[in-house]
Amino acid sequence: MHVVIPYVVAALLFALGVYGVLRRRNAILVLMAVELMLNAVNLILVAADSTIKSALTGVQPEAWANPVPEPRAGAIFALFVIVLAAAEVGVGLAIVLQYYRLRRAVILDDVELYRHDHERVTG
């Protein structure tokens, strides 16, 4: 198996995610692009998990790298990432909805982050 294939797929997906985040104005689409990036990372995790171990034969595993006899950490991380992504999407969409309720829009360009009064420090 040529591991470069999933890696390149992941790289391209990540690039698409970046492109989407930067290109899209709709918050939901941005979230989708973020999902793409997360999945790209997941793919790398899983691919690495499946393949790197076979490349490491003969290498004395370090204690920190090998907490249990058979490391499947990549897949577990991927699971964790998926869970995190779910949480992120839940909260993110709640924010989007709330924002929509307040402003009737989900266009990120209109989000103003600097409308707060701060004490002006004059010498």
Partner: peptide, 29 residues
């Protein structure tokens, strides 16, 4: 002057940090 300069620089940096969200995202990436 030291105080004023510091707060001016701070203001400039704060201004840079207050750029619109997409631009900020583009900058970060």
């Amino acid at each position: 002057g030291t105080g004023t300069t510091t707060s001016r620089v701070g203001e400039a940096l704060a201004y840079a940090h207050r750029m619109s969200l997409p631009a900020a995202a583009a900058a970060v990436l």
